[in-house]
Simulated scan of single mutants.
Amino acid sequence: MTDALGPGAVARLLGVAPTTLRSWDRRYGVGPRERSPGGHRRYSPADVARLRTLCHLVGEGVPPAEAARRVLSSADRSVPGPRVPAASAAPRSSPALPVHGSGHTPTLRGVARAAMRMDSDLVEHLLQTAVERHGTVAAWEDLAKPLLYGMGRRWEDTRRHVEVEHLLSWSVSTVLRRVPAPLAAPGTRQRPVVLACLPHEMHSLPVEALAASLREAGLTHRVLGPCTPTEATVRAIARVGPRAVVLWCHASGDHDAETLRAVARTAASAPQRTAVYTAGPGWRGVGDTLRVADGHLDSLTEGVRVLGG
């Protein structure tokens, strides 16, 4: 079969992991119809077409078992294929993941199901596709953020599935780090934006989403990450001379106001103007201290608009 492909090539072609291909073959019988003389899996064009359809259905939120049944039912009955073992025909379902918001799209449901099955390869594939098709801001606001919120609700309600929350967070972070920057024009230089969490803040995924969105927009930035000491943020302002600083706070802490005042003082004394913005729900308890900031960023969309202006 000179036109047959190996598992690695098919996985790259479809954007899934080789382990996912093996799982679909073993559990649902959607795999190669033939083997090489050495017993290795080799995928014909018809096999690849079936798998492409399966990927499309799963990406639209159809459970893999149902998607496989549809693919196999539409296949050419004259070509014998591998039988689906009885135990695999009805795999144990995973509990549903609650999602936040009203737009429960098929893609969102598909990612939720993949996360509950601990299929990180499929989660990343669907998230990556969403970023490439719709952009980082839309993928975060309409897909990743509702899923993460829903996972947090599930843990609060049941104290279960923390492993799914960790897997989902890691997958989201992985996809955000892959967002490429556009090619800069020769000689183009701009003062960066500094993104920092408060000293007690470990919840940094929204900062990663803002960083990826700025990178996608071609805006220079420096990320200091979770639990950034106040003195480190102050030193960063002095060293890089940013045009803006964003302080992220998810949950209020005892010294939030002190950190904001210290950063605002440093920014005000900088040779060039440095704007200071707050972001995150944790700033609600700070009160009048917020007046020392130039503004509060309520969403990723607003953050990219304001920082890119």
Rank of each mutant, 00 (worst) to 15 (best):
G253V: 04
P226W: 01
V240L: 06
A262P: 02
A270C: 14
R265P: 07
G241S: 15
T230D: 12
A244I: 00
T228C: 14
G241Q: 11
S269L: 13
V245F: 08
P226Q: 03
H221W: 10
C249G: 11
V240A: 04
H250G: 13
V234Y: 14
R243D: 06
A244F: 00
R265S: 15
L260I: 10
I237V: 13
H221Y: 13
P242R: 00
V263P: 02
G253C: 04
L219M: 14
A262Q: 06
R239K: 12
E258V: 13
A236I: 06
A262F: 07
R265A: 15
G225F: 00
V240C: 05
V240N: 01
E231V: 07
R222E: 10
T220Y: 01
L224E: 05
T230P: 04
G225P: 01
V246Y: 03
V263C: 08
D256L: 06
V223M: 13
R235Q: 14
T266W: 04
R235W: 01
R243I: 02
D254Y: 02
A264L: 11
E258A: 09
A212V: 01
V234Q: 11
T259W: 06
I237G: 07
A238E: 06
R222L: 14
P242K: 05
A238I: 05
S252M: 08
L224A: 05
L224F: 13
A264F: 13
T230K: 07
A251Q: 10
T259I: 05
R239E: 11
L219S: 03
A251E: 07
R239F: 10
A270K: 03
L214C: 00
G218D: 08
L224I: 12
G241M: 09
V263T: 03
V240T: 02
A236V: 03
S213I: 08
R235A: 15
C249W: 00
T220C: 03
E231Q: 10
C249K: 01
L247R: 02
R243T: 03
C249S: 13
W248D: 02
L260H: 05
